[in-house]
């Protein structure tokens, strides 16, 4: 399986990992696994680029990507893509636990995308949603939408899955009916 990245910053709450190349960037809201012991699961909540030379700033060249690769190949060495993922659980003794792992993922461990099967097994529990909700609100709603859309696809758009998920969200949102409505509307679009 294609690696998504390598962990560069780590805590028990979230990780930052660098992508190897532009084809391995995990989509926002996707579930990834970090190959440490135990395997830790996280949901991508931010993808960004940065420059590894602290004194240089990327500038605009006015060239197409092909022309750039031809004429200025070094800038691709300097520009990196990375992502941040919020930890939503870990896999141990054949079960998914949906709370923080005892230790943070070790630095330089590899991050892989989860398969549809893994996504399905993981989303049998719904407690992880709380950990996504701990992100600030502007972020968390977007992440939940993307995450649920991906999981729903894995479930072949099964209505029951969406209803279960919706019920869980409605409990988490307490009385915020508008928020629930807007999220569900965007998931189903």
């Amino acid at each position: 399986m294609n690696k998504s990245g390598e962990v560069l910053e780590s805590s028990t709450r979230e990780v930052m990992a660098e992508c190897r190349d532009k084809d391995s960037i995990p989509p926002l809201g996707s579930l990834v696994k970090i190959e440490t012991t135990p395997v830790i699961l996280a949901v991508v909540y931010n993808v960004f680029t940065y420059c590894i030379e602290p004194n240089r700033r990327p500038t605009a060249y006015g060239l197409s990507i092909e022309e750039l690769e031809e004429e200025q190949p070094q800038i691709f060495e300097l520009l990196k893509t990375a992502f941040q993922a919020v930890i939503v659980g870990f896999y141990q003794d054949g079960v998914y636990h949906q709370f923080s792992p005892p230790l943070p993922p070790s630095l330089h461990s590899f991050v892989y995308p989860c398969s549809e099967e893994e996504l399905k097994s993981f989303t049998e529990g719904k407690d992880f949603l709380r950990m996504i909700m701990n992100l600030n609100r502007g972020q968390s709603d977007e992440i939940i939408i993307s995450f649920v859309r991906q999981a729903w696809t894995a479930y072949k758009r099964d209505k029951l899955f969406l209803i279960d998920m919706g019920k869980e969200l409605s409990i988490l949102f307490k009385d915020d009916y508008d928020r629930l409505r807007s999220i569900m509307r965007r998931i189903m679009k």
Partner: peptide, 18 residues
């Protein structure tokens, strides 16, 4: 603001929780 008539899923989500 009841869920729209065609939105059966929303109705089912609310039912039993809200």
């Amino acid at each position: 603001n009841p869920p729209d008539e065609e939105n059966g899923i929303m109705r089912e989500i609310l039912s039993g929780t809200n």
